[in-house]
Amino acid sequence: MSEKPFISIEGIAKRFGAQVVFEDVHFGVRQGEFVALIGHSGCGKTTILNVLAGLDQPDSGAVLVGNDAISGPSLDRAVIFQSHALLPWLSAIGNISFAVRSRWPKWDGEAVRSHCQRYIDLVGLTGAETKRPAQLSGGMKQRVGIARALAIHPKMLLMDEPFSALDALTRGVLQDEVLRLCAATHQTVFMITHDVDEAILLADRIVLMTNGPYAKVAEIVVNTLPRERSRHDVHKHPHYYRIRNHIVDFLVERSRRFDEDRPRDYDPMHPPEVRPGLGEPPPPAPLRAVT
């Protein structure tokens, strides 16, 4: 894990009309790192992901890959969409090979096919190759989306709430899958999520955003749990609840009032990195629904 980020967000802001969704957003993702972004609905997470993907332009600031500002979408940054975004007229393997052919236009049919098959097998869809998206379950569709993203060997994976539409069981299975794949490939990942447990399970660092409008990065939580994790026993680690309570407390209380009682030394260019796993857990959050 090198210190210089693979991709760095430099003070981007986005407005829709007069409404400023977020501003002064700074953070970076390092090579091989898994960064999760958590924030309330509407604070601008998808917009940030779209900017990273190159699908959207910030109104100010820039996103740098290496030393160059990105100017548009790239095969180097694969996106797994919130709503899977499979092309419904293509079969599962058709969707994947559409991506593979875009990546390697000169490959012959057989090379494409065997490459696609490898990724179908990888995400556990063997046997469902020729099915159309409408014939697949939600979990299967999302697996096709993951296979499509991984099959083009991107330098970075951008995931927008990839599992939020799935039932808890399927979500768990897929989280394991992603955990396994990332451990095997050291894939650089940026993921948006609403699910605190998911973030702690998967991410190395968790970016916390305040509520919009004028949303910004409040702080970055470093996940001090060891890298080898499993869904079944991660919560047994002493850091787990400290981190979890810290994030829940942020979401429930501080994300709303951040502007009023922000630390005096707060500098949006260098949002504070905190390691709640190492310190004393903050007082438990009041019983209020997480929205």
Binding site: L55, S74, A85, L87, S102
Partner: peptide
């Protein structure tokens, strides 16, 4: 045509002609 489908094509750096024939045309067919 749903934005996400054209976005898929854009993130895959698909050229305009291929996007027209492989994404927009089948979507609008």
């Amino acid at each position: 045509v749903r934005r996400e489908w054209t976005n898929v094509a854009r993130t895959l750096e698909v050229g305009p002609l291929r996007t027209a024939f492989r994404v927009i045309l089948p979507a609008a067919a």
